[in-house]
Design a protein around this nucleic acid. Structure first.
Lengths: 212, 212
DNA sequence: CCGTTTTTACCTAACGTTCGTTAGTTGTCG
DNA sequence: CGACAACTAACGAACGTTAGGTAAAAACGG
């Protein structure tokens, strides 16, 4: 039977979004057909057009939701109180958490951010990239200001930081058994700030989650 | 030589590969049609099927060529004599050079490496990733062995290193005016080995090529 | 060296399939 | 009854692909 009380809303819409996430994240936008999506959701085609304008609208609404989840997670860690380095750790840990909880969503996001310029539906990749970039850069600029960090301007360091973060999420996308633990997140930031140079000081001891 | 006089070599094949590179790198595999490719090359459709088995064969042969260019460039720097750190600098510098010379090729490569698992033509992404990974890892393991480097196992450090490298090439793909100079390559490796922690020692002074 | 055959490099014109999309209809409830 | 949520059935367009043909160059036999 349909829903008596609470849920009440559009079970079909949710099923469509779930199915679309699964398929888009694995096959990409053009590689996934409307027919596959509705089949995965167990509904018929006009139902999709009842809830969504068209294929692109479905993708955009799906993507927006998932991307906002990530931004929210990162933003939360970024706007914490205190020094910069723990906040950076929180950012990576937050992103890693999301990747563990919802691997498909993270796959979808990375896929969009790193796809060809004119690929897929029209999304302003640069704007999306910038959105995330700005959040991290603000934290790093803060760290540079109180001499917690050095070694380059805020934009350079941010690009390096995001590279480290994204490469690990990408590694998980390729091999889902790769665990992105919060311990790993902490180690990565330690490596980021202390470097990979041998010295006698207490050093990070990173262990790769990415075993070949 | 097959051709005594001028042209008469498979000019059409070269034009097709050029056109395909331009389009695939910008629109992706599924986003590019055979018709666009032949139009860009100024030939007719059967000509494409004369030189290539099908669309997938065209893509694979194009990709293989460009990927081997990158591997070759990286391998050359990796197999140089001497300590590890200059070799790492050579690796990034080599990749950056290629990105400056042939931006479209690098875009194509990154697009394949970072695309969704079942997207596009069947290519063994993991194998490709591993190929590049192994080359860099060997250099880094060497650095760990003679205490040039520390801070984690060879796989962890390699993943971080590749993340830094790829994120910069990705940034250039998004904004082609971004210059990936060899000076930047050196600075990035310095940052990689020395970290972003403030200290009185002689430090890298990275300046971002990626201005928002 | 010349006439014939074969191969190369391209063409025009279509084929069948799959795609995203929609018009029109029906059953269910408040 | 009328709004909602689903259905069946088809549409036109775009896709990758191929059958069949042609003009010129290359290879070859006498």
């Amino acid at each position: 039977m349909s829903t008596p009380g609470l849920a009440s809303t559009n079970e079909a819409e949710i099923k469509l979004l779930d199915s679309a996430l699964r398929l888009f994240s694995q096959q990409g936008y053009e590689g996934t057909s409307i027919r596959e999506i509705i089949e995965g959701a167990g509904v018929t085609r006009p139902v999709l057009y009842y809830y969504f304008e068209n294929k692109e609208d479905l993708f955009q609404r799906l993507f927006e939701t998932k991307f906002n989840d990530l931004i929210e997670r990162i933003n939360e860690a970024a706007s914490a109180e205190g020094p910069c380095i723990p906040r950076l750790k929180g950012i990576i840990a937050g992103a890693f958490e999301l990747a563990e909880e919802n691997g498909a969503a993270v796959q979808l996001i990375l896929q969009v951010l790193f796809s060809a310029p004119q690929q897929g539906p029209s999304l302003d990749r640069q704007k999306l990239m910038r959105q995330r970039f700005k959040i991290v850069e603000k934290v790093i600029r803060h760290g540079l200001d109180n001499k917690e960090l050095s070694g380059g301007d805020s934009q350079s360091l941010t690009l390096v930081f995001l590279g480290i973060m994204d490469m690990h999420m990408m590694a998980k996308s390729n091999r889902m058994e790769t665990r992105l633990s919060s311990e790993l997140a902490l180690s990565l930031v330690d490596l980021f700030v202390a470097g990979a140079k041998y010295r006698a000081l207490p050093e990070t001891n990173l262990v790769s989650p990415y075993a070949f």
